[in-house]
């Protein structure tokens, strides 16, 4: 299992008219196997920019991303190998699956591409992945098209796809914000179970402090591209040090404190 490290990473975007926009400013953290870090902050705080850099959809302006101490290769086989280790689940399961292809196609591609399965073994591997994300009966689900699935089922397919190359790090960018409340918890619990079974390092990006606390060991609070506070989940939520963390917490609906008076 591998450790993913972010060392003094910054990302600047050039904005027309204005000068440069620093989306991520000198951020460092390390994601170890078996650990979940939640990244919280409001829209535009740089959460998704960090995720994009982690999966190499963007390159840092400065700083380094290291996998097991080695910098990420920029191209070729090395980059593919990096991608095998670091996989992502996207926010919108309605946009992240190809509507023309059945479920099995989405799992077949990563399995073959990353040589996780031979053609002969493909069927068994696909059904095993589907079973792991509780899309059963797998033999029936595999031939469904995305439009025949609910939002929660689609997100399970997306999770299965991310698991296909047997990654060591999983980035989940708001994995449940597009889903119905009543099924959110099921998907999060699934992610939690998989994380424990596979000993994954998980980066859980969200603006929901309650689930961040619930499913993570640590929380990092991002504000205007800067990590303003980080620490064990309970400490950050129950005893926030930074003003911004306090504002976030006070803005989150919390019926328990509202009705706390006897």
């Amino acid at each position: 299992m591998s450790t993913l490290e972010f060392r003094n990473v910054s990302k600047e975007y050039r904005v027309r008219g204005a000068s440069k926009l620093k989306a991520v400013d000198d951020v460092s953290f390390s994601l170890e196997p078996g650990k979940t870090i939640a990244l919280v902050g409001q829209s535009g705080s740089g959460k998704s920019t960090i995720a994009k850099m982690l999966v190499q959809l963007e390159r840092p302006t400065s700083g380094e991303i290291l996998l097991d101490g080695k910098p990420v290769p920029r191209f070729g086989r090395g980059l593919r190998d990096y991608r095998r280790h670091v996989q992502m689940v996207f926010q919108d399961p309605f946009a992240s699956l190809n509507p023309f292809h059945p479920v099995e196609h989405h799992l077949e591609r990563p399995l073959l591409l990353h040589k996780r399965s031979t053609r002969a073994n493909l069927d068994a591997e696909i059904e095993q992945l589907l079973t792991r994300v509780q899309l059963t009966p797998a033999s029936e689900m595999r031939s469904r098209k995305p439009h025949e699935l609910s939002g929660g089922q689609r997100q399970r397919v997306a999770i299965a796809r991310a698991l296909a190359p047997k990654p060591s790090v999983l980035i989940a960018d708001e994995p449940v914000s597009m889903l119905d409340v009543s099924i959110r918890l099921g998907v999060l619990n699934l992610l939690g179970d998989l994380q424990r079974e596979e000993n994954l390092g998980v980066l859980y990006i969200t603006h929901d402090l309650a689930t961040a606390r619930h499913f993570s060991d640590e929380i990092m609070v991002l504000y205007k591209g800067v990590v303003v506070e980080s620490g064990p989940a309970d400490d950050v939520i129950l005893n926030p040090q930074h003003d911004y963390t306090k504002r976030l917490r006070d803005a989150s609906p919390n019926p328990e404190s509202q009705f706390a008076t006897p």
């Binding site: 959110r184 918890l185 309650a210 606390r213 619930h214 939520i237 989150s252 919390n254």
Partner: peptide, 9 residues
């Protein structure tokens, strides 16, 4: 289905 924010972990 909503985890509690400040209650028991």
């Amino acid at each position: 289905s909503f985890p509690s924010l400040t209650g028991e972990r």
